[in-house]
Design a protein around this nucleic acid. Structure first.
Lengths: 333, 333
DNA sequence: GTGAAAGCGCTAACAC
DNA sequence: GTGTTAGCGCTTTCAC
C-alpha cells in the first residue's frame, strides 16, 4: 500500500514530527536531517494522504456545483468557467446534475454526497420562491440564477428584466413593431422566463406598442426542439410578426430553424434576438444577436464568494448583479 | 459545530458502538434502545462525518473526470453522461479541465488534487503514444479517446478509422467524388485526426478515387472558428469539391457557415458530413449528417469499468470499442 | 532541533 | 445486546 508518514520516519530514522516538519517547510531543521528525510520520501514515493488531512482540518478543498444538465450549453459553459476559477483558488469542483426537476433540486440540498464538500454553488431551474426556506442549510451555499430572491444565502445573478427590456428595445429601435416572444412560462413571475417576459412588456409599453397575447409562445423546456416547436406553432397560428425574441439562445436556434423551414428570411422578414451569448451563437446561420449576461463574471464572483464564506461563515449574505450587454450580430438588421 | 457519534451516545445514554449499530441497521438492538438513539440523532441533527468514514474505509466515493474543456460540446455531453451513470453507481464526479495541452495533461496525472478521488477517467487530447508510460499510475485509471493505444490502463474508445471510412463511403455512394476533408493534423498517425484521415483515404482508395492533397484542409484546434477558417481557405484556394467531411461536428458547423458565406448550397453544391453527433447537429441548418460514436455507451462502460477496478485493482487491463452509426440528415442528398 | 502523544470521527474486532 | 478500544494518517501542542 501507499507509504505513510510513519514509514518515512522509520526509514529516515527520525520521528514523524520531523518528517512533517520537512513536508511543511518548517525552517529550523538541520540540513542533514532534512536531506535524510527527503531521500526517504523519494525512495518510498510518499505522498500525503489527503483524506487524513481532510479529517484533521475539517476541509476538503472541494466545492460542489449543481446545475440542471451539462447537455445545456449555458450550464456547460458556466461549469467550465467555475472549474477554471476554482482551480485558481486551489479548489476542485464536484459537478452534480439535478435534471431540472424541483424534487431533485430540493433533495440535492440535503444529499449525503455533498457532505464531503466544503460548500455548494447551486443553480436551480424549478425551485420557486416558496421553497426559499429549503436554502437554509448548515454549509456554505451560493445561489445562482433567478428562481429565488431574498433567500437566506448569497446570490449571484443578473438584471434579467432590464436586459430583456434592452433586447426588446433594440428590436423596436430597428423598426420592428410585431415582436413575438418564444419561451414564456405561464403564470411565472420570477424565474428567468417571468423576469424576461416582464422586461419585454415594459419595453413595449414604454414605446407605446400594444401588447398582443397572440405573439407570446410558451415553451416549457428551453431546448432547441422546444424553440422549433413553439415557433412552428406561432407560424401555423397565422399571427403576423416581424421580430422574435427568444428567451434563450437555444430556443433561438430552434426558432431560426423553424423560420428557415417556413421560408421566412432572417433578418429580412423576421429579426431574431436570443439571450445568453453561448459560444455557438456566434456561429449559427445567421449569427445570432443576443444578450451577454456576464457569465464569466458570474462564475468568478460565485467561486470567490463561496471561498470567502468557507473561510468565514459569519459574513453577511449578499446579492450580486452582473452587467449585461446586447451583442449585435446578423440576425437583426 | 456538527454533532458527532460521541455526542449522540452521551445524549442517548449509550456507547458509540450502539449508535453506530443503529446507523448501520445492525439487527440485534432492543427496540427501546434503538428508539432512544434515533431520538438523540434527530434532536442533535446528527449526520455522519463523511471524511472520517473515508479515512477509515480508504475510499471516497468520488471519481475524477478529466476532459480538455467543457465549452466543447462533445466533452460537455460526455461529462453529463458520465455523471449520470456515476450517480447510478453511487459515485460522485470531480471534473477537471486540462485545456487540451500536453503539459497540463501529464501534470494532472500526478496532481495532488486527484489524491482524494478513487480513480480517474482521463480523456487526453494532446498526449501521444510516446507518453504512454506516464499512464502507469498507482490508482485506477480508465483512458478515453484515441490518443494512446496499448497503454498500461483500461481504454474505452471507438473504431475511428472504420467509422470515418463509412462516412466517406456514404458520400461516395451518393455520387460525390471530390470530397474535401477538414480538420487534418499534419503528421498525426493515431489520435482522432490521424485515425479518421486514414479511414477517409481507405474509402477513397477502395472506391478507386484518387487522393488529392489539395482537398485536405488542416485545422489545429477543432472549434467552430477553425472549421470556418479552414473551409474559407479551401474555397479561396480554388480547388473543386462537391462534398466535405469534417472530422468533428463543431468543425462542420463552421464549415456550413463558410459555405453559406460563399453562396454554395448544402447539400446541392456541397454535401457535408460531421462526426460526433452532438445534440446540436440535429438542429443546425441544414441538419447535419454525422457519425454517432456511441458516446452514451462509452460513458457507461467507462464508469462501470472504473468501478470494477476500484473494487478489484487486480483485474486485467482491457480495451473496449463502441459501435458507430452514420446518421443521415439534410446536409447530404 | 527533534520526539512523544493526543485527537480529528469513524468502524470493527473483541470482550462481556 | 451493548461497551471498550485500537487504529485509519495526519497535524500540532508541549516537552526535552
Amino acid at each position: 500500500m501507499a507509504a505513510t508518514l510513519k514509514d518515512v520516519a522509520r526509514k529516515a530514522g527520525v520521528s514523524i514530527k520531523t518528517v512533517s516538519n520537512v513536508i511543511h517547510d518548517y525552517p529550523h531543521i538541520r540540513p542533514a536531517t532534512r536531506e535524510r528525510v527527503e531521500r526517504a520520501i523519494e525512495a518510498l514515493g510518499y505522498t500525503p494522504n489527503q483524506t487524513a488531512r481532510n479529517l484533521r482540518s475539517g476541509r476538503t478543498g472541494v466545492i460542489a456545483l449543481a446545475v440542471p444538465d451539462l447537455a445545456l450549453s449555458y450550464f456547460a459553459e458556466l461549469a467550465g468557467l467555475v472549474i477554471a476559477e476554482a482551480e485558481r483558488l486551489g479548489l476542485s469542483v464536484q459537478v452534480e446534475q439535478t435534471g431540472g426537476t424541483r424534487e431533485r433540486e430540493i433533495e440535492l440540498l440535503r444529499a449525503p454526497r455533498l457532505r464531503m464538500t466544503d460548500g455548494l454553488l447551486f443553480s436551480p431551474l424549478e425551485m420557486s420562491q416558496d421553497d426559499a426556506a429549503q436554502l437554509r442549510v448548515d454549509y456554505p451555499l451560493v445561489l445562482l440564477g433567478e428562481r429565488i430572491f431574498d433567500g437566506p444565502a448569497d446570490h449571484v445573478t443578473m438584471r434579467n428584466t432590464e436586459a430583456a427590456r434592452a433586447a426588446t428595445e433594440f428590436l423596436v429601435e430597428r423598426g420592428r413593431r410585431r415582436i413575438a416572444l418564444v419561451g414564456a412560462h405561464e403564470g411565472e413571475v420570477i424565474g428567468s422566463a417571468g423576469l424576461r417576459l416582464a422586461g419585454y412588456r415594459e419595453a413595449l409599453e414604454a414605446q407605446g406598442i400594444g401588447w398582443d397575447e397572440a405573439l407570446v409562445a410558451p415553451a416549457g423546456a428551453w431546448h432547441r426542439i422546444d424553440g422549433l416547436r413553439a415557433t412552428r406553432d406561432l407560424i401555423a397560428s397565422g399571427v403576423d410578426f416581424d421580430a422574435l425574441f427568444a428567451l434563450n439562445d437555444t430556443l433561438a436556434f430552434g426558432a431560426l430553424r423553424a423560420l428557415e423551414e417556413a421560408g421566412r428570411s432572417v433578418p429580412g422578414d423576421v429579426a431574431v434576438v436570443g439571450f445568453d451569448a453561448v459560444d455557438e451563437s456566434a456561429f449559427s446561420i445567421p449569427a445570432l444577436t443576443t444578450v451577454d449576461p456576464g457569465r464569466e463574471w458570474i462564475a468568478q464572483q460565485a467561486v470567490r464568494r463561496i471561498a470567502q464564506r468557507i473561510e468565514d461563515p459569519g459574513i453577511d449574505v449578499q446579492t450580486m448583479f452582473a452587467d449585461y450587454r446586447v451583442v449585435a450580430r446578423e440576425s437583426t438588421p
